[in-house]
């Protein structure tokens, strides 16, 4: 466990909490893509099946359970509790465009051809693209609430910190996981454009709106 990994996990957790607090306080999930949140719930579900098969550490188990619970509460808030505020019209990304290639790729390129390993691989590939419906929604409406941009910032920061973690682990432990690293790089690239807007607009007190 290194500092990048801990900070990465903390910003991941922080992102999910920010989103939940935003929805809970405003009693609205306007501007949030329900599809992205369903994908994240699917990511955690397929990745953390090893909760039943292998024990890694108390930290690992507790964080996995928290992530799963947060993801499902978020989906519940969007589709059940505050469904009237959900902007279904603009959340129009076609999920099959992500799910079909990701499923195919996880069968083709994995560490071993076993059900758990294929599901883990599926979750890694899916996570790298799961934010696309949310980014698509923002590009469609042309704006995002400031708190939503904080959520996205911490979600992107988490993946960027994991990249630092992998570089660290490669040098100190000679550990690397090619599937995770390649997907992590792809995932981080998706956030670059957003990071630029976040720094140039949101941090200067302006609302994120696209021209």
């Amino acid at each position: 466990m290194n500092i990048f990994r801990i900070l990465g996990d903390v910003s991941h957790l922080l992102a999910m909490i920010i989103l939940l607090v935003k929805i809970w306080r405003s009693k609205s999930c306007a501007g949030i893509s329900g599809k992205s949140q369903i994908l994240f719930a699917l990511v955690f579900t397929t990745r953390y099946l090893d909760l039943f098969t292998i024990f890694i550490s108390v930290y690992n188990t507790v964080m996995k359970v928290i992530f799963l619970v947060c993801a499902y509460i978020t989906v519940y808030m969007i589709y059940m509790k505050f469904h009237k505020t959900f902007d279904r019209e603009h959340d129009s990304f076609r999920l099959e465009f992500l799910l079909v290639p990701v499923t195919g790729l996880s069968f083709l390129e994995n560490h071993s051809f076993t059900p758990l390993e294929i599901l883990w691989t599926f979750s890694i590939y899916l996570e790298s693209v799961a934010i696309l419906p949310q980014l698509f929604m923002i590009s469609k409406t042309g704006e995002a609430e400031t708190i939503t941009t904080h959520y996205l910032f911490f979600l992107g920061l988490y993946r960027a910190l994991y990249l630092a973690n992998w570089i660290w682990r490669y040098h100190t432990e000679n550990f690397y996981d090619q599937i995770a690293v390649v997907s992590g790089v792809v995932q981080t690239i998706f956030y670059c454009d957003f990071f630029y807007l976040y720094v140039t607009k949101v941090l200067k007190g302006k609302k994120l709106s696209l021209p």
Binding site: S57, S112, W120, A180
Partner: peptide, 10 residues
Amino acid sequence: QETTEGHDEL
């Protein structure tokens, strides 16, 4: 080396 025995990252 690549690991295939469990994934310790979240």
